[in-house]
Design a protein around this nucleic acid. Structure first.
Length: 590
RNA sequence: GCCCCGGUAGCUCAGUGGAUAGAGCGAAUGCCUCCUAAGCAUUAGGCCGCAGGUUCGAUUCCUGCUCGGGGCACCA
């Protein structure tokens, strides 16, 4: 419809400006009005033309309206305010959306061509060192929904999870399990302050104990480790930080002891720990309707030489150098604040080095556009990854990073420190996957989110996800009621009498239905899935519930009933399509 | 100090340079002999953080200030 009005305006523009060429002919902007009193669509074209033409805006508007070609879809055009041109559409223009929807069904609003190009979306990528928390849940809901929207907007999408299963954190995980195992065997040792203390570590330790018995994984030298420092009461920040570093060094001694003393058993423990954590993550994400095309392991990436390959390429292009025993990347030359270390003085690759190689690998797999979804705390990291990509490919537009701002929980349930750590699994178990996903998607991702756990849990009128789902269930119920009464809905009859859909409630609902393709396109374009959530709730479901209360659908007038049921069928389809994009179920009964 | 995000109704938040800034919750009042009341209708509630600038027009774009959150490793 917008396009149609745009064509009309282009024509009017051409005749009005005939003989007085403009330096920059403005492209007509047509928008839906916010207020029905201003018609259905508006354009500010006259306001934009006033200055270059040297005429008052209302004069320009009059000339444009006079030059508009006639259209059977436009009922009335008027001029209002400072010079807006308002279009009032003919009823048939609204009603035409119904056959479009009924013909397209699940494809309505979608562009499944994949013609926009190929894009890889990497999201979640939570470290397999523990359960996912509520922040990962927001990342998962966002990434998965953005991927859905991009697909619906014509992109070929690949979803990937990067498993950080190399590096020091997995050593800390391994040592944590090992020490819990030894404690289980009755070995008296002080569990390090900076190891992972939680119960999930014991689960893996107990599993290993069942497999290997009580006499494995023992090494000499445990008693010779120096005692760990503890921060004194009332220590200042500098002192606390010093103690923290010494505690990290203490863990490193355990790591060295384990690696050297356990040999292959160390790897066995590491593998067991990672397997358990990853299994838990996969299960939680599956319960959250989040799927991936591929799970890429950092350790595998290293093992198959992707890191060496990337380093070699950087070296050949003169993008690295050695200083203080470390290998550095010349990232400052590509927009980063400073150069970054790739290989530490101890010979180990940094996380950055491996991640850089991973991004190169993504591009090498022929995904020319990359979207990474990260927590906001990683924002300082963007410049260096982008720098590496630009250095190797010459492209500075290959990588888009979207940062997910922090999640806090209502009712003071947040935070590891308080001991009230709420995992994503607990949240899903308590509130349900549908409510949880919808709540995450109700906020812009750049907005700090306060997650109201009690509201998400409530199975009441207050819970916004039910508002949308209830609209769908009500529609299903209408058709169930119809079938029960033995009556038959004839779609062809309905389509033949769409002109009967002429009251204000029907017009509002038809308008909302017609906007669905625009919402997909704009939410995908701006990577803003919350727009779809708001559209479904505040426009579509809202228009339907009002309609439902104001009018009966199952009426004696057969033509009117059929027309209304056709509208109902279209609404049910669009609600279902929209909820599917959000990864929320569309129940037939509630 | 530098970088990122935010400041809109009592609370949680929408708002694609446009006209009288919206929704939910909370508060007040109505609506089920009728397709699901997990719903609908009505009322109350606002220097859109502050100050400049660009523009015919700024909650929206730019600059400065201010307040809040986060980040500035040879950690991941």
């Amino acid at each position: 419809m917008k396009a149609h009005l745009g064509v009309l305006l282009e024509s009017a523009l051409a005749s009005v400006t005939a003989g007085r060429p403009l330096d920059v002919p403005p492209a007509p902007q047509v928008d839906a009005t916010k207020d029905p009193r201003f018609g259905d669509f508006q354009t500010n074209l006259a306001l934009m033309l006033a200055k270059p033409l040297g005429l008052p805006p209302r004069k320009v508007a009059e000339a444009l309206v006079a030059a508009l070609p006639p259209s059977d879809r436009v009922a009335k055009v008027d001029i209002a305010g400072p010079g807006f041109i308002n279009f009032h559409l003919a009823p048939a223009a609204f009603q035409a959306v119904v056959p479009d929807i009924l013909a397209a069904e699940a494809r309505y609003g979608r562009d499944d061509s994949g013609g926009r190009g190929r894009i890889m979306v990497e999201f979640v990528s939570a470290n397999p060192t523990g359960p996912m928390h509520v922040g990962h849940g927001r990342n998962a809901a966002y990434g998965d929904t953005v991927a859905n929207l991009l697909e619906a907007a014509g992109w070929r999408v690949w979803r990937e999870y990067y498993i950080n299963d190399a590096g020091r954190q997995t050593d800390v995980l391994t040592v944590s399990v090992w020490l819990r195992y030894l404690q289980r065997c009755g070995v008296a040792l002080a569990f390090p302050k900076r190891a992972y203390p939680a119960d999930y570590i014991r689960v893996t330790a107990d599993r290993l104990y069942d497999e290997v018995g009580a006499n494995a994984f023992r090494v000499a030298g445990i008693d010779e480790l120096p005692t760990e420092e503890v921060a004194a009461e009332g220590a200042d920040d500098a002192e606390k930080n010093r103690v923290k570093l010494s505690q990290e060094a203490h863990i490193d001694r355990w790591i060295t002891l384990g690696r050297e003393g356990l040999g292959a058993d160390y790897e066995r423990i590491r593998h067991a720990a990672l397997t358990d954590q990853l299994a838990a993550i996969r299960a939680t994400l599956a319960a959250f309707s989040v799927r991936f095309d591929q799970w890429t392991s950092e350790a595998d990436l290293v093992a198959r030489g992707a890191v060496d390959k990337a380093l070699k390429r950087l070296g050949e292009q003169g993008l690295t150098y050695t200083r203080d025993g470390a290998v550095w990347m010349k990232s400052e030359a590509f927009g980063d604040e400073k150069d970054r270390v790739l290989i530490k003085a101890d010979g180990a690759a940094t996380y950055y080095c491996n991640d850089l190689a991973y991004h190169v690998d993504k591009l090498d797999r022929d995904w020319p556009r990359l979207l990474d979804v990260w927590g906001a705390d990683h924002h300082g990291y963007i410049a260096r990854v982008r720098a590496a990509i630009e250095a190797l490919t010459g492209r500075n537009d290959a990588l888009d990073v979207q940062l997910i701002q922090f999640v806090t929980l209502s009712s003071g349930r947040m935070g590891k420190r308080s001991g009230n750590f709420v995992t994503l699994k607990e949240l899903i178990d308590e509130a349900g996957a549908d409510a949880t996903r919808f709540f995450y998607l109700m906020r812009g991702h750049e907005q700090h989110l306060e997650f109201d756990v009690d509201l998400a849990k409530s199975r009441s009128t207050d819970n916004p996800v039910y508002y949308v789902q209830y609209a769908h269930a009500r529609l299903c119920s209408v058709f169930a009621q119809l079938a029960e009464s033995g009556a038959v809905y004839d779609r062809a009859t309905g389509l033949a009498h769409l002109a009967r859909l002429d009251n204000e409630h029907e017009k509002r609902l038809l308008t909302a239905l017609a906007r669905f393709p625009d919402v997909i396109a704009s939410a995908a374009q701006d990577l803003a899935p919350h727009r779809m959530a708001f559209y479904l709730k505040d426009e579509l479901a809202d228009a339907f519930h009002s309609y439902y209360n104001a009018h009966k659908f199952l009426v004696d007038d057969a033509a009117l009933q059929a027309a209304r049921l056709a509208l109902c069928e279209a609404t049910r389809l669009v609600l279902g399509n929209g909820l599917a994009l959000l990864g929320v179920s569309a129940p037939e009964r509630m």
